[in-house]
Simulated scan of single mutants.
Amino acid sequence: MSAVVETPQTHDCRVAFAEELIALAEQDPRIVAVCNDSVGSSNLTAFRERFPERLINVGIAEQDMVGVGAGLALSGYVPFVCAAAPFLTGRALEQIKADVAYSQAPVVLCGMSPGLAYGELGPTHHSIEDLAWLRAVAGLGIVVPADPAQTREAVRWAASAAVPVFLRIGRFKVPAVTPPGQSFQFGVAQELRDGDAVTLVATGSMVSRALQAAEILAGEGIGARVVNMATIAPLDEEAVRRAVQQTRGIVTVEEATITGGLGAAVGEINLRQPRPVPMRMLGSPREFAPTGDTAFLLEHFGLTAEGIAAAGRELA
């Protein structure tokens, strides 16, 4: 009789985001939400019901939205500026650069439903370039939580950090991966599993899949280290250096383009080491993704446990 493999419970990180935002707003009257006619998709319905005077809906005007957020921040408020990630980062990139990062306005930019979450709506709604172009903006933190627990902690940190930051809040459901007792620290990676053959560096929705890949490799006698790189900027350089020194190769995994994102950031550090190790970068290539649901697109780009394991196997 074959063993029954239980499917882990999965969660929508937007729910954790909304619940934590309301809890913080109960304690801090400075917290406000700003959105672009995206109350529903940003999961702000309950926030609006609880704090109707503290939700500012500018309509479909993302550049104005970021400018309003910057003005509020510089006036002493703590604005969470929420919109679908492709429109927040694509349409308002100049305002993010000039009004937020250059001005060091402590705005929390919340990119909702990033990556390939809006799969069926096609490349106009896919947000695979956001990590790449935001990495190029000086003075802006980039945080990509991996599960609901880390989402809650990242929201709490962002509310009190008083620095410009982009939070990438995933839409499609993921299992819990944060071990009990491990807390989110800005700029510090979490090592979720040790291994001496290959290091799997993943972010956001891909962390759970990297852990699954490590299980596959363990069954083949290959020890895979798994690193949750929740902060993309500033990147935890020490975690990368340890991977270079202690394992034979690095696989990076991101629900984003590999042109300029997590893989590129890790590669830059790897190449500065005395003895760089081989790398494989998994994500979307520099092309528009086809139209299809999220599961199809992730499989199309090899962003599955099996695809990650295959890349790790090549380097081990």
Rank of each mutant, 00 (worst) to 15 (best):
V5R: 11
A311S: 14
Q104N: 08
V100E: 14
G283R: 13
V188W: 15
F288M: 04
I31T: 00
S41Q: 03
A3P: 04
A3C: 07
P278S: 12
F166S: 11
G283V: 09
N36A: 15
T291M: 06
V201E: 13
V137K: 01
I308Q: 05
D99E: 05
L88F: 05
T291R: 10
G40N: 04
L297F: 05
S205F: 06
A197R: 03
I22H: 03
L72S: 04
G263I: 04
S38W: 12
V198Q: 04
Q246D: 08
V34R: 04
T45Q: 12
I96C: 05
P145F: 00
Q273S: 03
A70W: 06
H300V: 09
V177R: 02
A154D: 06
V226D: 01
Y118R: 00
E153D: 11
A197D: 14
D28K: 10
G122Y: 01
M1P: 14
V226P: 05
V108S: 06
V34G: 00
R48T: 15
I142T: 06
F51A: 10
P79E: 04
A83C: 14
R54C: 13
C13Q: 13
V198T: 14
P180D: 06
G249A: 11
V68C: 08
V163T: 10
V78N: 10
N228F: 11
R280I: 14
I142N: 01
T124F: 06
V227E: 06
V227P: 12
E237L: 10
R272Y: 13
Q104Y: 13
A162D: 15
P145E: 00
L116Y: 00
F51R: 03
A33E: 04
R30L: 13
G263D: 07
A138Q: 12
D37S: 09
V58N: 02
F296P: 00
A105H: 05
T247R: 08
G119I: 05
L134V: 13
P179C: 01
A197Y: 07
A84Q: 14
D99K: 09
M229D: 04
L211E: 09
F296S: 07
V107W: 04
E255Y: 00
S205M: 12
F288W: 07
R225G: 02
G187H: 10
V177W: 01
E299F: 03
A162K: 04
R286A: 15
P234Q: 02
A210V: 10
G187N: 07
E20A: 09
A83D: 13
